[in-house]
Design a protein around this nucleic acid. Sequence first.
DNA 1: CGTCCGCTTGAGCCTATTCAATAGCTGTGG
DNA 2: CCACAGCTATTGAATAGGCTCAAGCGGACG
Lengths: 253, 253
Amino acid sequence: MTEIVQFRELKRACGNCSLRELCLPYGIDQADLRLLEDLVQRLPPKTRGKALFVQGDPLKSIFAIRTGSVKSVTLGADGAEQITGFHFPGELVGFDAIAGEFHDCSAVALEDTSLCEIPFERLDELSGQVPGLRRQLMRLLSREIQQEQHLLLLLGKKGAEARLAAFLLSLSSRFAGRGLSPTRLHFSMARGEIANYLGLAVETVSRLFARFQQDDLIAADGRDVTLLDLPRLHAVAEVAPDATTSMSTRSKC
Amino acid sequence: MTEIVQFRELKRACGNCSLRELCLPYGIDQADLRLLEDLVQRLPPKTRGKALFVQGDPLKSIFAIRTGSVKSVTLGADGAEQITGFHFPGELVGFDAIAGEFHDCSAVALEDTSLCEIPFERLDELSGQVPGLRRQLMRLLSREIQQEQHLLLLLGKKGAEARLAAFLLSLSSRFAGRGLSPTRLHFSMARGEIANYLGLAVETVSRLFARFQQDDLIAADGRDVTLLDLPRLHAVAEVAPDATTSMSTRSKC
DNA sequence: CGTCCGCTTGAGCCTATTCAATAGCTGTGG
DNA sequence: CCACAGCTATTGAATAGGCTCAAGCGGACG
């Protein structure tokens, strides 16, 4: 009821959007901002489980998260799902598709989530006119690559404890970057989703939470988690399973 | 000696470069091609183990592979290395850095490798003028994301056999795309590098090669491998460890 | 010729998974 | 208001897949 009125009011208000520092390019000026605002469309909120887009969909839009959170999931040919990322307010989702014109993963809301939709075609055109925007897009694409490389390192080389510790610290710093507490976290994702993301079984994650509490690394109450000892968590996250892992080829250049 | 002469001749010859179909944007015309050629600099070949750039280096250039092959490696804080990708002729390396201005991984030659260097600053400027080039850059960035997502699925959800089978098939199709045989492969990477890439121990990879040969899936002679049964390899690659892995949240949108 | 490195193979161990049972939470309907 | 179904989370016991450790082999290179 009042919802509908709000949509009208909030539509096309990037200039006032509290997230403009996050999701808009740095060196963009007022005139360019107008152009960008015309592209952006506020969307009715998605509830938990609703998809922004599904793997295989043609690329139509990029989505900016205003509130809530979103997971990216890729589906294997055999039906196995791997969560490849979690996304929070101020972040953009949907970049995976640009290569093939089709989305290579699905994006699903983890909780009630409000979004802005940005038609890709027009964003692409605009990025030709506004160098700052083009740079920012590249930056975001590239940041996604870096995040995935970090996850690859985790899945390829770290044990279960290190994975969870790294995950907690990663959330901590991301939340802190948005002005939230770096130690008192609230999870929007289920244990099973954490497990999936980290390449572990649900039971393992549950046991790790228990162990971390015993060791006074964290205090957990369901999805509310307090990080008690960041230095030691960092230590746990950086456990090298074997220091002799030095690769065959040493670059002596 | 004669080498040096060749460099002069081959320098700035994108138009004649046999790889132009691969590493240049599709919709680029002759005039634009000239502009691009001016950016590109042929480099003296790197030998095995030499780095194109090292993690932490500021982003200066993108590299196009003409011949040979390259691996991307990210270093963890604890010294653990994870190979995040292998790159072959016609492919571009160095995109990871664009976000932070610094390279987030190292790129190292796997064998004698000849390269073209493309200064990023000027490529960026040019991409503002040539829409086709901008699109192609985005496509390449995004393709990198897709490849890493695929690897994430592998490391997070698949067992050792499936990982190796998927790896072999991936190389097969990439080689085939470059006009080589899809069944007779030659590896430029060591067993240890395959193992690292797949998140396995060297011994495991070795044992898997043996097992695959016993099962007549492949015939391996050192780094020369023949794929004998693609359909069954596909079957092995798509083993779902557990079909009940369906995630908590089902999107009913 | 000897050493080093890459690769393979064997044996035992350990981590994380699988299987199984229980408790908490939420929403639905009687 | 409570009972019931369905789902999330936790905990225990047994299994197994891949790792570590150890040894042997062959080729490359100084």
